[in-house]
């Protein structure tokens, strides 16, 4: 009897791993679709050939490598980073609504961008093209650093962190309004466009930066998977299992800070992915973080990549800000999933 149950458990585990594999393939397919879509539609064969460095028209090669791939790769990586950050945040803050937005990371990044765009202040020595992203990164990281500091002074419980995060969110939003108030019409338009979240300005160096941050933090996330799983059973339980919950929380929030600051600084404010990616993943594979974390990451990548394609095709000839697309298209899907989940 117990052997049968165990092998059923292992079968479920294999099924979940297979689901993660399917998500990975779907994300890759979405990436290809994203590459094929645009003002000049490309055939799948040509796209693949261009990617492989094969014999294609010179125009096709330029479109794939220089125009579309940075944008498509950025979409994939930003989606992955935001969803992984959201998943880990929801667990360590023991709150299903936690994501980079809730803690004021996005608002702070927007404030940083505003300071660069409107006031022209940025880090000395940074090339002009990087001034907006650099500022946004710095402000987002600063916000999470401040949050950790405040949390540590006050004992660092999850409720305290969330309350401080919400306060930080409103503070950053108020300061942002102040900067907008003094901004010129030109700068204001630029800023509004930035806060809507856009992939249009994606460049290879930015893609590389996110790739490096993601590659650097994913191994640590996955290594903490059982610890994070234990935290779902409550803080006392995790501690009695031998998990240093305070340390786990601190390091996870550090990783999450880097991930979300990098993502938000590159593409602006992208809603929904950090919140819904983990929720969709949870409905698919459950809460064992060994599959939940990779599933969240891949769901985020998939959703964001599809959103990138949609942002080009929804209104022909117009590139919509991708942040709008994720929110508008994503939310109905999310509602449907929640309602379906409730009925079961």
């Amino acid at each position: 009897m117990s052997d049968a149950t165990l092998s059923r458990y292992h079968r479920q585990g294999r099924r979940n791993s297979a689901l993660v594999g399917v998500l990975a393939l779907a994300a890759l397919a979405a990436l290809l679709l994203d590459l094929m879509t645009g003002p000049a539609g490309l055939a799948l064969a040509d796209t693949l050939k261009a990617l492989a460095g094969g014999e294609v028209a010179r125009g096709t090669s330029v479109i794939v490598w220089d125009v579309r791939l940075p944008v498509a790769a950025m979409a994939l990586l930003v989606g992955a980073a935001l969803a992984l950050a959201g998943a880990e945040m929801q667990t360590v803050l023991e709150n299903p609504l936690a994501e980079p937005f809730t803690l004021g990371v996005s608002a702070s990044a927007a404030l940083g961008a505003a300071v660069a765009i409107v006031l022209g202040l940025s880090l000395p020595g940074l090339p002009a093209v990087w001034s907006v992203s650099g500022n946004a990164f710095l402000f987002a990281l600063g916000a999470l650093g401040l949050l950790q500091l405040l949390g540590r002074i006050r004992g660092g419980g999850p409720e305290v962190l969330i309350l401080f995060g919400v306060a930080l969110n409103f503070t950053a939003a108020a300061l942002l309004s102040l900067v907008q108030f003094v901004a010129s019409a030109d700068a204001l338009q630029q800023l509004v466009f930035w806060t809507m979240g856009s992939l249009a300005s994606a460049q290879w160096p930015g893609v590389m930066l996110i790739a490096v941050v993601l590659a650097g933090s994913v191994p640590f996330s996955f290594r903490a998977a059982w610890k994070l799983t234990a935290l779902r059973l409550g803080e006392d339980q995790a501690r009695s299992f031998g998990v240093d919950v305070t340390g786990l929380r601190r390091w996870t929030l550090f990783r999450v800070s880097l991930l979300s600051a990098a993502a938000v600084s590159m593409v602006g404010v992208i809603g929904f992915v950090g919140l819904a990616g983990p929720h969709i993943a949870r409905m698919l594979v459950g809460e064992n973080h060994r599959v939940f974390l990779p599933a969240s990451l891949l769901t985020g990548a998939l959703v964001m990549s599809l959103a990138s394609t949609l942002s080009k095709t929804l209104v022909p000839g117009v590139l919509l800000p991708v942040g709008l697309v994720t929110s508008l298209i994503g939310l109905p899907i999310f509602f449907a999933l929640i309602l379906r989940g409730r009925r079961r």
């Binding site: 059982w226 610890k227 799983t229 234990a230 339980q237 995790a238 299992f241 998990v243």
Partner: peptide, 8 residues
């Protein structure tokens, strides 16, 4: 998880 979270 009670066994593996703390590497027991």
């Amino acid at each position: 998880a009670a066994l593996r979270a703390g590497d027991t």
